[in-house]
Design a protein around this nucleic acid. Structure first.
Ligand SMILES: [Mn+2]
Ligand SMILES: [Mn+2]
Ligand SMILES: [Mn+2]
Ligand SMILES: [Mn+2]
Lengths: 224, 224
DNA sequence: ATTAATTTTTAGGCAAGGCTAAAAAATAAT
DNA sequence: ATTATTTTTTAGCCTTGCCTAAAAATTAAT
């Protein structure tokens, strides 16, 4: 059996591979353990052939490691969606529960909830759910911070890192699939003003960073 | 946080307290570990004030220990019922899944499934679900092996220990709430013959041991 | 009352996964 | 090119839970 700690290391390494080299320190920070602990674990994971580890140089998952990462992420996102769709959790409550359960459900459980949810492709925060064989549903999204005045976009994904932020976002109506129009944007990472369901809102960098959007095709637009 | 191992020890000790003194060996057998491991753990549990441990003499849970036991058992049985009622598991599939999940769900999760299930009192095998404050729903049941010819009884509980046995029982129609009439019983733990839904069945000791029944009041009887 | 058998505890080890403090390597600054 | 800073690794230690083998205590049989 593969341990919870192992799964958490592998998962975080997988998630960090986007932003350049995955270093000892970055893993330590993400998992809230010391770098010494990370070095120790990386050696063991390399021993298990779940990743390739070059001292001082960083780390890269093997095929086997990536498979485990995708499996855990699939569990996590399916559970999040299940909690929210079937059990009535709010989107700020699902992450912590999923973070534990992802390591302890059976394949049968995974399959059952996958079917109950109608073969879903995205979790409650818009994150793609890897398929059983590791394919990741694609959708074209970009950071809200990249938008320009005049853009008309739909919220397609939010970061699930901070429950407080999620509560704030739903409070001000910034939930998935909501369409917003960018009214203005100040330079130097300054605040945006947007129109959300008829209300004008200011969204500053700290908040905007959490939101990803896709353009609304002009023929779908409903002028606000 | 209290570890999974701790919870499993406490739970098994609680369950064994019915049959006389709980000994090192009996715990070892039940948990499939060596007696040396048990001695070691008992010392730690005593240190944590979860039980009173007298060398060579056996063990008894404290109030704190009992509270943990009841909490874990409540989780286990609620999860079993949830899996069977809401997710379509069969009664032979629920135990293993519950055995892991019981240690990892939150109080919120517990509450949600409790409500979804309509404040249930018994699990899919007829075992009572301890209430939030530790009360255990009572029902008057006795072993099927204690029945005498002529008795008319209802199946109120089955042992969930062996999935194979559970599959066999449902195969021959011996599921919860089914009413059966005892036709004959051989001495020396010999087989019983019973009438189940019009069919005559032989139930020998190994099988009968798993079944607990309550008498059906004569005015409720439906002659078979 | 001894002796034999059984149960339980001790002693000593091991693997996983953490930690701190010190050493070494890599990077950045002068 | 040195020197200073940051990153990473080593070394040594700890706790949890498990193990085996040997010793001690208890219980059962003669
Ligand atoms: Mn996790
Ligand atoms: Mn999510
Ligand atoms: Mn368990
Ligand atoms: Mn049960």
């Amino acid at each position: 059996m593969i341990s919870q700690a192992t799964e958490d290391y592998i998962k975080i390494i997988y998630k960090m591979k986007g932003n350049g080299t995955v270093t000892t320190n970055s893993i330590a920070k993400a998992l809230n353990v010391t770098s010494a602990s990370v070095t120790n674990m990386l050696k063991r994971l390399a021993e298990m052939r779940l990743l390739k580890y070059t001292s001082y140089k960083g780390v890269k998952l093997t095929k086997a490691g990536e498979k485990i990462a995708l499996e855990v992420i699939r569990h996590h996102r399916l559970i999040e969606l299940y909690l929210s769709e079937i059990m009535g959790y709010t989107w700020d409550e699902v992450h912590d529960e999923a973070e534990r359960l992802e390591h302890h459900i059976s394949e049968q459980f995974e399959e059952k909830i996958f079917n109950m949810l109608g073969s879903p492709e995205f979790d409650p925060h818009g994150a793609p759910i890897p398929s059983k064989n590791g394919d990741i549903p694609k959708n074209e999204i970009s950071p809200l911070t990249d938008c320009a005045p005049g853009d008309y976009v739909r919220i397609e994904r939010v970061s699930d890192a901070d429950p407080e932020m999620l509560r704030y976002l739903s409070e001000i109506g910034l939930v998935l699939m909501v369409e917003i129009k960018i009214l203005s944007k100040e330079p130097f990472n300054g605040p945006l003003t947007v129109n959300v369901g008829g209300t004008e809102r200011m969204i500053w960098d700290e908040v905007a960073k959490n939101i990803y959007v896709a353009p609304v095709l002009s023929n779908d637009k409903v002028e606000a």
